[in-house]
C-alpha cells in the first residue's frame, strides 16, 4: 500500500477540460502523472460502459471532466455525462465497490488551475481509498498475467 500509485483515467471534453489541461501545461502547473487523459468530443459521449471497462481493466479511479453548467458546446452533453457518472456510482455501489472511485467535474477551457487542482485532489482521494479491489484479488492477477 505504501508504494501504491493509483492509475487514474480522466475523460476530458475537447472544448473545456482538455484545453484546461493544455492551459495547466502552458502555465507550468504541475499535476500528478497518475492521471491518464482521454480526449473526447463531448463529456456526454462518455458512457457508463467506458467507465466500467476502465475500472474492470485495472484503473483505480475514473473521472469525467466536462464544461461548466450551461456552457456545453453540444448544449446538454455535460448534464448527460453527470447522469452517466451517477449511474456508474449506483452500479458500483450494487457490486460493493466504492462509488467514490468515479466522479464528475466541471471546468472551462481557461481553468488550468482548476484542472491541476482536480487532478491532484482526485489522485489523493484514490490514494486514500487504496487499490481497486478488482485488481488486487489473486484471480485478477492471474487473469492479467495470462492476458
Amino acid at each position: 500500500m505504501q508504494n501504491f500509485e493509483p492509475v487514474i483515467v480522466a475523460f476530458c471534453c475537447h472544448y473545456c477540460a482538455y484545453t484546461a489541461a493544455d492551459m495547466a501545461g502552458s502555465k507550468r502547473l504541475g499535476y500528478p502523472p497518475n492521471v491518464k487523459i482521454i480526449r473526447v468530443p463531448c463529456s456526454g459521449k462518455v458512457d457508463a460502459i467506458h467507465m466500467m471497462k476502465a475500472l474492470e481493466k485495472g484503473a483505480d479511479g475514473v473521472y469525467v471532466a466536462g464544461c461548466l453548467d450551461g456552457d456545453c458546446h453540444f448544449k446538454t452533453g455535460n448534464i448527460r455525462a453527470a447522469r452517466h457518472v451517477e449511474a456508474v456510482k449506483k452500479l458500483l455501489d450494487e457490486i460493493g465497490i466504492e462509488k467514490e472511485r468515479v466522479e464528475m467535474f466541471s471546468m472551462s477551457a481557461g481553468m488550468g488551475e482548476k484542472f491541476a487542482e482536480v487532478a491532484s485532489e482526485f489522485t489523493e482521494r484514490i490514494r486514500k481509498l487504496g487499490p481497486n479491489p478488482v485488481k488486487t484479488s489473486a484471480f485478477a492477477q492471474v487473469r492479467q498475467a495470462v492476458g
Binding site: 471497462k53 474492470e56 484479488s137 484471480f139
Partner: peptide, 12 residues
C-alpha cells in the same frame, strides 16, 4: 463488466 468485477473482488 459488473459481474466480472464483483467476482474478481470476491476472488472467484
Amino acid at each position: 463488466s459488473a459481474l466480472q468485477m464483483h467476482f474478481m473482488k470476491e476472488n472467484k
